[in-house]
Design a protein around this nucleic acid. Structure first.
Lengths: 236, 236
DNA sequence: CGCCCTTTTGAAGAAAATCAAGGGCAGTGG
DNA sequence: CCACTGCCCTTGATTTTCTTCAAAAGGGCG
């Protein structure tokens, strides 16, 4: 269940062949458990490995000078991070565990060797990166209106859960506090609270106790103008 | 002056060797002039070429369902776009010429052939992409406060101009209307106007007639918490 | 000059932040 | 078992920020 989260992610991005699969299976991934709310990656580091989230949720974030926090993305099982340090970049953000996690480390030289001459695998990394970039653009796009932003945010995470097979009866895990959501959308927790209540009152969602149910997913997606293509629509 | 904008950009990202330079020089780039305000790339296309902006300014944008426009990035001479379609993605945004431009087209297969086995060149593309991604994160980071957002925005474009050698006496071209700036920051043109006036009154900038002068760059950068590292700090 | 586009200004209203306090719930320790 | 603590959610009142609407004032260009 856990190492395979990485493979499953790659399978969603490209069509792996037998050699690709063997290459992935042969990767020496060291696994570390990480506690909820503990930092996984620090800002400004230049680690010599990439990491894969094998279990749990994590968030990318940056602290502002005034101490406030901006979450710029969420990692779900299978998602990876710090791939880019591979080519000499330094982390421009930190990563924190939202829930208890299991994190796999992959040294960069190993990764580089693995994707060399494996066009499939290097394409997978590109596509993952492009999808992240598209997600950032989407966040910018919807950020002009809190109701739309929150609705879109919930659609996005629900869709991502769904693609991992984690939705039952329209219900998915959402282990975020309203403060987390606010930090992701540049809204105060108070305003997130009131916006969620509006979404509830409008009969679109049920949310609480770490779970989200799309009561009327169609209407929610309409309200959010949610089109999931940007989440990596290369394979069905 | 014009094809070389592309090479200069790559030189800023990696250390090119003689073979790299020859490879770049040999690229069959077809150049098209484009008029101000004309669209360069349409949304949802899957073009078989990437393009390089050789002269002028352009902007990436997406239209919302209500007709409003979100600019998600600016292209300056040397910047390229649509590289990613290379690996099967479709454009999730459009590109419009801000000024009259000269645009170079490079077929994807040519590009793929060129970067294959040229680790330097493929790294350059990665770094360019990572820098764009970091820029998007930065825009999200500063978006919580209009004064900070506008200040940061001006710092960023001024810095990018400077790296292209386009700054004289702290003065750079800024061929944007206040509506453009608003579309980039999710602010109304009216509010951009008032915010610019505050920045003027605070003695930080002089702006107008398509030009921007940083009267007190240090103070402006402090106000914006501007740290230019994210713009691709690989080479000085 | 007259036109179009952009900038500027004013007044009013909506959206979101801030400040403050109360309530629920889970975990902890007596 | 109950009190206590800490975290999160909720609510209300108030202030600030930003938008909206409207109109006037430049500025470049045929």
């Amino acid at each position: 269940m856990s190492i395979s989260a990485f493979q499953r992610k790659l399978e969603m991005l490209v069509s792996l062949d037998a050699v690709d699969r063997r290459t992935i299976a042969a990767l020496p991934i060291t696994v570390y458990p990480t506690e909820k709310r503990r930092e996984i990656f620090d800002n400004g580091q230049r680690p010599n490995f990439a990491f894969v989230l094998l279990e749990g949720w994590a968030a990318r974030f940056t602290l502002r000078t005034d101490g406030s926090r901006r979450i710029t993305g969420f990692l779900l099982p299978g998602d990876f991070c710090g791939i880019h340090a591979r080519c000499g970049a330094e982390m421009d953000h930190a990563v924190v565990a939202i829930t208890d996690c299991r994190v796999g480390h992959i040294p960069h030289d190993v990764l580089n060797a693995a994707i060399k001459d494996r066009r499939n695998l290097s394409d997978a990394l590109w596509r993952a990166k492009l999808s992240e970039e598209a997600t950032l653009r989407k966040w910018l796009l919807v950020s002009h209106d809190a109701y739309v932003a929150v609705a879109h945010f919930l659609c996005e995470l629900h869709e991502r859960s769904e693609r991992l097979g984690l939705v039952r009866d329209g219900r998915s895990k959402l282990p975020l506090t309203q403060t987390d959501i606010g930090d992701a959308l540049s809204l105060t927790a108070v305003h997130v609270n009131r916006t969620l209540q509006r979404l509830r009152r409008d009969g679109l969602i049920v949310i609480g106790k770490g779970e989200l149910t799309l009561v009327d997913g169609t209407a929610l997606k309409r309200a959010a103008a949610f089109k999931p293509d940007y989440l990596g629509s290369w394979r069905q």
